[in-house]
Design a protein around this nucleic acid. Structure first.
Lengths: 338, 338
DNA sequence: TATATTTGCTTAACCGGTTAAACTAATTGT
DNA sequence: ACAATTAGTTTAACCGGTTAAGCAAATATA
């Protein structure tokens, strides 16, 4: 895949690299290269299909036109959707996207951030972070353009696009209560994320507002690295020991797998146990029963994140924005309303 | 985000860039740099957290350690899953992944390929291509490492990881016929892909083997850029005009949306119309009714693709491999078997 | 006609790495 | 005692671009 270089053109036309460079960057007139020479260069470049080496260009300009996307897992529909939006918008402004999945491991995330910086990305969109304070702080202090998505660093002032986690879950729990459920369990994932903690807070708040006492036994933390087994155990306990009549799941994948378990155990949803998912996924409406969810604008989140980032990159702006997206209940049969 | 350079270290320690470079690449002994000097350099690099600029490194070495992933749409679960596998394997060997979605547009794909080459990616995984013969041929002739996934270029000898599209669909149609269905429709997507054409062939073959005459009216081609409306029209025709009692969908998203339409129109699945999807997606087993699908090993496809690519990159191998994955019926209620 | 300006282009340094070749001082061989 | 090695390091060129500064010839100005 050898392609010609500026130098090749220069030699072939008996000119200097400089002149060729000017012309290839459409600065020929500005740099008063004769019309004739410009044509010769363009002609030659065209027929020999010259394509500038972006690596060299980036190195020289100190700008790579790459943005890094760091997510827990690119194959998760939520992150994949965000990735698509980011890519779409970024591309319009001439940026490419490198991505990496952390698997929710802070060590990997730390490495990935460094690796992206080494590659001289112009900015980062980080949809992750579990206790990665130091890295984030370093980015912030280095004045490096980045945006955090779906997570709130209470004590670091950064660009953030996040969710009303707490209120979202509260609305879910209240919905179940309003539908007559008395013993509502909460299944969350054991990740040290503020967002995840906020969801638990939302659960507690709902109980409080409805004057129900909080019972630790019906709150289960599922292990991220072994969702299947861990969730199974949690579910069986909630259903058999605790006799819950409703469950709110803190993430879409927990809800999906939870429903699967309930069905395998021949537990009727919503008759015996009503359920609500925080986060929707494609096909939720086709499930048996259709899954009620706390929905949020994923596409808008992606768009906003990349807007913030590109703004920061292009305008060297140091202002930081906190954008919190509202959630909305999408009521289907699984919650017992219909 | 300024970080120090080789030169900075060299100056600080009163050495040459060369010596520092050798040491940083662990070639100190080989290049017989004194133990003492090595220590000084390592020490300094450590405390000043020196990180080589990968752009410069890549330029110099003529190797970027980046691989490009080109898919129709990264937010489609199929491609997202493949992306994850590719990333995982690539990372182990020190590669990063840049991705871009083509939206099934050959023009965009062409541009994207060029853009990736300009960025000096070391190899490409292309899960796409609609009539992009020229580009693929150019890559091939330029001896550039690349792998095509999910598509077969009959006339270009390349690394390919694809599916038994034809047999897969045949098995689906035969299943419906064996379940007593007489009028089976086929809904496919109007893309000029050999894989898609093969799926239609599979449909025809099944009819032939069961001595059913082929009826053009029950084969519908849905517009890629307007699936929703186009599919709706197709479905209504099949169901109301043609009175089909079975439908095979050429892709998972057609099947999902098809089922949605059937339900919205209160058509019982599988009693009135039995359906099968080519390709499975998460949650298909939870649908009402659970969706029968022609399943294939996505993860293995991703793994194989990246193995082939990395082999081609690292070993400069020019051999090409054609790997065709087998499909397998995953029988659930939607086909009327159970 | 002498000077200033403009035109059209080149030189050379830089971005931050890698590496073949050369060079000097110390050590070994004979 | 003198040549040949060896150790330890540097010089300089290169990867393929960008760009400030400089220069010579042509043209304009006084």
């Amino acid at each position: 895949m050898k392609s010609i270089s500026l130098k090749d053109i220069a030699i072939a036309l008996n000119l200097s690299k400089t002149t060729v460079s000017y012309v290839m960057n459409d600065r020929g007139d500005e740099k008063r290269v004769s019309k004739e020479t410009q044509d010769r260069i363009k002609q030659y470049a065209q027929t020999h299909s010259y394509k500038p080496n972006q690596l060299a260009r980036s190195l020289s300009l100190g700008k790579s036109n790459m943005i890094g996307l760091i997510v827990p897992n690119i194959s998760d529909s939520f992150f994949a959707q965000i990735a698509r939006r980011i890519e779409k918008k970024a591309e319009k402004l001439g940026y490419n996207v490198v991505f990496s999945s952390t698997g929710e491991s802070p060590e990997r995330e730390s490495k990935i951030i460094q690796s992206m910086l080494d590659r001289q990305v112009d900015g980062l969109i980080i949809v992750s972070s579990e206790k990665n304070h130091d890295d984030i702080l370093k980015l912030k202090e280095g004045n490096f353009p980045f945006v955090i998505v779906g997570r709130k660093y209470a004590d670091i002032e950064t660009n953030v696009v996040a969710l009303e986690d707490k209120d979202g879950v509260t609305s879910a729990v209240e919905l179940l209560i309003d539908n007559g459920r008395k013993h509502i369990g909460f299944i969350t994932i054991s990740l040290e994320l503020d967002s995840i903690k906020d969801r638990l807070k939302g659960y507690k708040q709902a109980l409080k507002s409805k004057d129900i006492t909080y019972n630790t036994n019906v709150v289960k933390h599922v292990t991220y690295n072994d969702v299947e087994a861990s969730l199974k155990e949690a579910m069986l306990e909630l259903v058999h020991q605790e006799k819950v009549d409703g469950i709110v799941f803190a993430t879409h994948y927990l809800a999906e797998e939870g429903l699967r378990l309930l069905k395998h155990n021949n537990i009727n949803v919503p008759e015996e146990v009503a359920i609500v998912s925080f986060g929707k996924d494609r096909g939720f409406d086709l499930f048996d029963p259709p899954l009620t969810s706390v929905d949020f604008p994923i596409i808008e989140m992606g768009d906003t994140a990349v807007d913030l980032l590109l703004d920061a990159i292009e305008n060297q702006v140091v202002t930081t924005k906190n954008i919190i997206m509202k959630t909305k209940l999408d009521i289907k049969q699984s919650c017992g309303s219909i």
